[in-house]
């Protein structure tokens, strides 16, 4: 039997005329990293706030670890760790004092908090810096302290709202390695006090506008205008476009783009700096591969490489958006 840590159905939240969340249903399994992926204003943060009970929904229900977030708020919240976009810490307090603060606020007893804090600081790699004032931490270390604070109470569900915004790629990589390890080794999170021999699994919901982050999640929900427009594993999402993406490199780019657009089987041409991604109709890759090079050369263009390429999530998101919104994106907030 599948154990769902999050079961949300028909969530809706409007702010005045803004339909921030418009019918979101979401199930997240134990041990799963779920990515809410979309732009600023797509409804990601509102969804997360509804899940933790920080906002009342206009409609819909949320169960976290079997507890109704509105009726059994205390029990539900005791299972949640939440790292918000603007995580605040006490700059004058040391790393350990910051963790202690969060642990005590969340009701950890005086005998519990120290061993747990040390365990979690070791996990995120901050144990050597426990006596350093938080104000003197680098950006990446602050991020890890935020994660440690969210984890100190052994939550079963970890909600991360754009945790790596403004962080460089090396630090992001480190951060993600921690998140993936957390769900891969639930023993880390199980309390020595529980008598279960089977450690309890952890789930993570993470929001991000970036596709490179989305590709690291087990399952992804693409959000647009308050709705989830597609939901699947990154592999399955990409496979929707298998065989339909061609990569073209050559010069000059404007001729390549122009000629590619003219081909009747080409649905979309996207420029990516030094190359084009061409989306072709189902089953038409061969036709395009066979003709495009000579078409380009006949008007004086030059082709360095034309090949079938594995689709990336960016291709999928754009293809989905084409279907959902045939017209140009609307400039106003939706």
């Amino acid at each position: 039997m599948t154990n769902y840590l999050v079961q949300a159905t028909g969530l809706q939240k409007h702010f005045g005329n803004t339909r921030a969340v418009e019918g979101v249903s979401l199930n997240v399994k134990e041990g799963e990293i779920y990515g809410l992926v979309g732009s600023d204003g797509a409804g990601k943060t509102t969804t997360i706030r509804l899940l933790v009970g920080a906002l009342l929904p206009d409609a819909g229900e949320v169960e976290i670890c079997g507890y109704n977030i509105l009726k059994q708020t205390e029990q539900a919240r005791s299972t949640i760790g939440y790292l918000s976009q603007r995580f605040s810490m006490y700059e004058e307090l040391t790393v350990l004092e910051n963790i202690r603060f969060f642990a005590e606020v969340r009701g950890l007893s005086s005998t519990e908090w120290l061993p747990r804090s040390m365990e979690i600081l070791e996990f995120v790699g901050l144990d050597k810096f426990k006596d350093r004032p938080a104000g003197q931490l680098s950006g990446g270390m602050r991020q890890k302290l935020g994660l440690a604070s969210a984890l100190v109470t052994r939550p079963r569900l970890l909600l991360l709202d754009e945790p790596t915004t403004g962080v460089d790629p090396v630090t992001r990589q480190d951060f993600w390695q921690l998140v993936i390890k957390l769900v891969a080794q639930p023993a880390l999170n199980s309390s020595p006090a529980t008598h279960n021999s089977q450690p309890e699994g952890v789930s993570v919901i993470i929001s991000t506008p970036y596709m490179d982050e989305a590709s690291r999640c087990h399952r992804v929900g693409f959000m647009k205008s308050g709705r989830i427009i597609a939901e699947d594993t990154p592999t399955n999402l990409r496979s929707r476009l298998n065989g339909r993406i061609l990569e073209l490199r050559g010069s000059p780019l404007d001729i390549l783009r122009h000629i590619a657009h003219q081909n009747e089987y080409v649905e979309d041409v996207q420029a990516f700096g030094d190359r084009l991604h061409i989306r072709v109709q189902e089953g038409r890759a061969k036709d395009v591969l066979g003709r495009l090079k000579s078409d380009i050369e006949s008007v004086g263009g030059h082709v360095d490489e034309l090949r079938s390429a594995p689709p990336v999530l960016e291709d999928v998101f754009i293809a989905l958006s084409d279907h959902e919104y045939a017209s140009a994106p609307h400039p106003l907030k939706t």
Partner: peptide, 11 residues
């Protein structure tokens, strides 16, 4: 284009 989805980024 930080913080926008691929459609807006692409545009």
């Amino acid at each position: 284009t930080s913080g926008v989805d691929p459609t807006a980024r692409r545009a």
